[in-house]
Computed example of a mutant assay.
Amino acid sequence: MSRDVFLPDADATEALGAALARTRPPRAVVYLEGDLGAGKSTLARALLRALGVAGAIRSPTYTLVERYPVPGGEAAHLDLYRLAAASELDFLGLDELSTEAGLWLVEWPDRGQGGLPPADLHLRLSVEGAGRRVRLVPGSPEGEAWLARVPS
């Protein structure tokens, strides 16, 4: 069961991020998919902000991984756009992340194919007029239960 949501503006993106934060399971992997400028980082920031991350939320475009303390543990925001091959994931310390981070937000997951944990939820973003459209697609039973808790 997937769901399409139109995000006409920044407020709608913030609202979706807040809904995902309120309903998230204790451990989850989210793949943020879409072209450049589709709103992947914006939605990740909205979710992190709703989880209580204060201060700057940097895009991990150059660092590849940014980690944030959140209630119940840690969130990891990964941007794999600059990876040339999935084998480069070995240098990111993902083994440590898998034990410490309860939430993974992964942009450009296709660049790390085979080296990432499977997604519980896929957020497929696209530009639509002045707004964005996001298709929420569960990738696991936990993701299905999560999506069922997100208000329509």
Rank of each mutant, 00 (worst) to 15 (best):
P117H: 08
P118R: 10
A86I: 10
Y31H: 15
A46R: 14
A56P: 14
A56W: 08
P71V: 11
Q113F: 10
G34E: 13
G93T: 03
L47P: 03
R22D: 15
T99I: 11
G72Y: 05
P109R: 07
A56F: 05
P25N: 06
A44E: 02
T23F: 05
S41I: 04
F91G: 11
G73P: 13
L94C: 09
D90T: 14
Y81N: 12
L20W: 11
G72E: 09
T63E: 06
R82H: 09
Y68F: 14
G37E: 00
R111A: 02
G55A: 09
L97R: 04
L94P: 12
G114H: 10
A84K: 13
E96V: 00
F91E: 13
E33W: 03
D90N: 06
G72P: 10
L32Y: 03
W108T: 01
Y81W: 11
S98A: 13
T42E: 09
S87T: 14
A86F: 13
V70P: 09
P109V: 01
Q113L: 15
A76L: 08
E88G: 09
R49T: 12
A28V: 04
V65N: 07
V29D: 08
T61D: 06
G72L: 07
V53M: 11
L105T: 05
G55M: 15
R49W: 15
G37Y: 00
L32W: 02
R27Y: 06
R111T: 11
S98C: 11
L103V: 03
A75R: 06
P118K: 03
P117C: 10
A54L: 13
V65K: 06
V53W: 15
R58D: 08
E74F: 02
G55W: 12
D90I: 08
D35L: 04
R82L: 03
P117D: 03
A54F: 04
G93H: 06
E96Q: 06
A86G: 08
E66C: 13
W104H: 01
G73N: 14
L83W: 14
T42L: 05
G39K: 00
K40R: 09
L103K: 01
P118H: 04
A21W: 03
V70S: 09
A44R: 00
E88V: 11
A76Q: 04
S41F: 08
L47V: 07
Y31L: 12
S87G: 13
